[in-house]
Structure formats: C-alpha cells, structure tokens
C-alpha cells in the first residue's frame, strides 16, 4: 500500500485534515473518515445518484470524485442542507409532499434539487426532471418528488 496523502477537505463549511489513499473516493472518506453517512453508496459507478454532493456549488458524484482531487474545494453534503436545525425549503417540500419512501435515494435527490434551484430558481417541470435525471428512485415513481421540487421553487405555491 502506498503512502497516504495528507489533504484538507472542506465539508459543510468545516475543514478536516485527513490522510487518504489516492484511490479513496470522496464518498468513502465522507462515510468512513468523517462519519457523514448521509451520502449513500448505491452503485459506486456514478449511475444511481445516491452519493450526490455539491462541489463548488455544482452537483457531482461522491463516488466518482477522488478525495485527493476534492481537496481545497467547497463540498456540501446532505448533512449541510439544513441550517441551524431548520429544514431547507427543498427538504421541507420533500417532507410535506410525502415524496420520501425508503429514503435511500433522498440525500442525493435533496442535494441535486438544491443545486438545481440554486442555478434556476424557477424551473419548468421539464427542467426539474432534467435536473433530477441523474438520481434514481425505486420507490416513489418520482411524481411526488417533482411536485415537491416545484413547490420549493420560486414559482411554486408555498
């Protein structure tokens, strides 16, 4: 095994000094080194989206990002969405609309929806669907997820 690399990783505004192997993914490091288990490993191939995190404001895959390559960038995980204990508008809407079933996809879904609305505060339904197109859900059929994100958007009825 090669020498671990010292990195400094900024997650949800907090900087962690860690040692990682070059092949360690951000997802692995979040879950195993800093106990942020909200981001899920559903496939480890970048397909399911359960590990979605925001890096420098853009939604990306925790499982396809190497921790060493994420050093120095601003990372936001699902644990960073609620501020001061209050649910974010996206989280509140997902709750209110009953969009959550097993919940395994939800951390990634909530992060993707948050990134979408940050870019485009008033998306059309088609834009909502495109924004969430990288997040698989096996329970909901997506209907209530779209309703929730629509209501959390600037144009949505609150």
């Amino acid at each position: 095994m090669s020498e671990a690399i010292p990195i400094s990783l900024t997650v949800n505004g907090r900087t962690h000094r860690l040692f990682v192997q070059p092949w360690h993914t951000l997802l692995q490091v979040l879950r195993e080194q800093i106990s942020l288990t909200g981001s899920k490993r559903g496939c480890n191939q970048g397909v399911c989206g359960a590990c979605s995190v925001m890096i420098d404001g853009a939604v990306m895959r925790g499982c396809l990002t190497l921790a060493a390559d994420a050093a120095g960038r601003e990372i936001v995980t699902v644990e960073g969405l609620a501020v001061g204990g209050a649910l974010s508008p996206v989280q509140q809407a997902l709750l209110d609309h009953g969009a959550v079933q097993c919940g395994f996809c939800m951390p990634g879904m909530a992060v993707a929806a948050t990134a979408l609305l940050a870019d485009n505060p008033s998306p059309s339904d088609a834009e909502i669907r495109d924004g969430l197109s990288g997040n698989l859900c096996r329970c909901s059929g997506y209907v209530k997820v779209v309703e929730a994100v629509r209501s959390a958007s600037a144009g949505g009825a609150s």
Binding site: T25, N44, C63, T65, D69
Partner: peptide, 14 residues
C-alpha cells in the same frame, strides 16, 4: 491522467 474522473474512477471502483 485524471480529468473529470467520471470514467476513470468508475473503472477503478470496479
């Protein structure tokens, strides 16, 4: 080379 990682890291994970 590691560019975006989308392909290479998926292959490393597998």
């Amino acid at each position: 080379c590691l560019a975006g990682g989308a392909t290479l890291v998926a292959m490393m994970n597998a």
